[in-house]
């Protein structure tokens, strides 16, 4: 019997080079546009607005001239584990209605909006704040023409459900369909990348299959500068960061010894 993934499992992941990131926010915009993220007439309530890709700012807490800043673009980390050895991320193991799952074949954590009942337990369980709740009905300002830019490949969300980064899963399906039409089963490295990776003007974001040693991401994560946010929690995220700066690598986790929180 022919299996779709007879070549071994895929494990899609992302590497973000923080030394290249300028904090411009293009990834956030590209992501929102690609994934039909609903907006608000007034977006100032940041605790309730939606941004699958969020750029966090941190600094080293020092005065000029030693002051340095770093930007952490934070998509969904697509964790592998819950932190206690359970082979599903925290959000997946707590979901009541199986609305979110870890796809073992792609490593992508799915979120099914029509299944979500909106209990928000996953939101409470996620340490990365990567999950967003639709506090309002979906809104796309008609007079501004925004509704004409909606993508038919991503279904818009209704009020009262959680949404989050899907690693642009529809792009994977698009690439697969193309491959099938060509009579191929495997897709090439450049055929599937996320919208943020494609849009980043500094090319700080690399996307690919972490299981495939030929893919650039699999090589980048071997770097001594590679790290993940909150690695100590043992959630095994698939989003890696690169930085040659010691303090940046250090503030990505909660160091038990001296550490001062940032401003901003």
């Amino acid at each position: 019997m022919k299996k779709e993934h007879d070549q071994g499992k895929y494990k899609y992941g992302m590497v973000i080079d923080l030394d290249k990131c300028t904090g411009c926010g293009t990834c956030m915009v590209a992501c929102a546009a690609e994934n039909n993220v609903s907006v608000r007439p007034d977006e100032s309530d940041k605790q309730r607005s939606i941004s699958w890709m969020q750029v966090y700012k941190a600094d080293n807490g020092k005065e000029f001239p030693e002051a340095e800043t770093v930007y952490f673009p934070r998509p969904c980390m697509h964790c592998e584990q819950d932190g206690r050895g359970g082979h599903a991320p925290s959000c997946v193991s707590v979901c009541v209605a199986t609305a979110t799952t870890l796809d073992k074949n792609t490593g992508i954590v799915s979120q099914i909006y029509t299944r979500c009942i909106g209990c928000r337990y996953c939101q409470a369980a996620c340490p990365y704040k990567a999950r967003y709740f639709n506090w309002w009905d979906a809104y796309f300002p008609v007079d501004k023409g925004l509704e004409r830019y909606l993508s038919p490949e991503v279904s818009p969300r209704m009020r009262g459900v959680i949404e989050k980064c899907s690693f642009c899963h529809h792009r994977l399906m698009r690439a697969r369909t193309k491959a099938y039409a060509d009579g191929r089963r495997k897709i090439k490295e450049n055929e599937y990348i996320t919208a943020c990776a494609e849009a980043c003007p500094a090319q700080a974001i690399t996307f690919g299959d972490l299981n495939n040693p030929k893919h650039k991401v699999a090589q980048l994560i071997k770097s001594k500068n590679a790290f993940r946010i909150l690695e100590r929690l043992n959630t095994k995220p698939k989003v890696y960061y690169l930085s040659s700066r010691d303090w940046v690598r250090k503030i990505a986790d909660n160091p038990v010894d001296e550490f001062s929180p940032i401003s901003g």
Binding site: A97, T98, C116, G118, R120, Y121, M158
Partner: peptide, 19 residues
């Protein structure tokens, strides 16, 4: 408290027993 009260029965019908 749940965002989609009409789907409340999903807890029982599509239960994720690990939750």
């Amino acid at each position: 408290d749940i965002g989609q009260p009409i789907r409340g029965w999903f807890i029982f019908w599509h239960a994720n027993i690990h939750s």
